[in-house]
Design a protein around this nucleic acid. Sequence first.
DNA 1: TCTTGACCTAAAGTTAGGTTTATGTATTAA
DNA 2: TTAATACATAAACCTAACTTTAGGTCAAGA
Lengths: 133, 133
Amino acid sequence: MYTIGEVSKMFNLPISTLRYYDKEGLLNDVDRDSSGIRKFNDKTLEALRVIECLKKSGMQIKEIKEFMNWCSIGDETLLKRKEMFIRRKEHIEKEIKELENALEMIKYKCWYYDEAIKDGNEKRVKHYSSTNA
Amino acid sequence: MYTIGEVSKMFNLPISTLRYYDKEGLLNDVDRDSSGIRKFNDKTLEALRVIECLKKSGMQIKEIKEFMNWCSIGDETLLKRKEMFIRRKEHIEKEIKELENALEMIKYKCWYYDEAIKDGNEKRVKHYSSTNA
DNA sequence: TCTTGACCTAAAGTTAGGTTTATGTATTAA
DNA sequence: TTAATACATAAACCTAACTTTAGGTCAAGA
C-alpha cells in the first residue's frame, strides 16, 4: 500500500495529476482508508505504467478511461483490448518513422550550419538546400 | 508564387493555420499583391518544411518564431542556430527511444491478449505480467 | 496545545495551438 | 447583374490535460 505522495515520487508525477487521473476514472477502484485517504496498491502501479505507455502512443485520457473500463468488465472485452493494442502499435510505429524523417532533416541542418560557420556565412552552403533538404 | 489555398493543399494544412503561422511571425515577410492577398514563394515553402520538422522535434510556436527571427538577422546568429539544431537532435533522439520503449510494452500486450484470447481468459497469462511488463 | 505536514474536495484558472465567426473585398462565370 | 469563389481581418471561441486555489481534516512531534 502506498500513499499518493509515495506514488507521486515513484512515477515522478505531480500529486495533482494522480488525483486528476483518479477523478477521470483511469485508476479503477482506488481504495481509501477510514478517513478517506487514498491507498494505492500494485494494481494501481501497473495501471500507471500502462497509462504512461498509452499516452506515449498518442491516446487521449478519455480513450484510456474507456480501455480501463473494458479491463474491469472482464473476458468478453479481450478481443477489443487486443485490437486496441494493435492500433496503438501501428500508431506508434508511424510516429517513429515520422520522427526519423524529421531527424534526418535536423542532421542535415547540423551539417549545414557547421559548414556555414566554417565559411562565416551561408553563401556557399546555401546551394545544397534544394537538393538535400 | 502560390496563393494560400494552393499552399494549404500542398502541405495539407488548413488555410486558417497558415494565416495563424503568418500572424505569429513564423513565415518571415510574406509578400502581398496590390489588394492585400498573400503571395507565397519558395522561401515560404522551405520555411513551412522547417516548421513541420521543428514542431515534430517538440518545439513550440514561439520558439520557432525566435529561430525564424535569427534566420532573418543574418550570419551573426549562425552559431545559435546550429546549437539549436543540436538540441533538437538530442530531443528527438530521446523521444524516439521513449517511443521504442512504449512500443516494446505494447508488443508484449499484443502477445498477452493473443494468449488470453486463445484461453478465453487471462488466468494463465496473467502470471507473466510482473516478469515481462 | 499548537503547529506542521500530508492528505482531502470542488471549482476556477491556465496554456498551447489552433479554429470559428462575422464581416468585407475582388474576380470571374452565367 | 448577380452569384459563386477565393481571398482578407479581428476577435471570440474551443479543447485537452492539467494546475492552482480556497477551504477543510487528521495525526504526530515540540
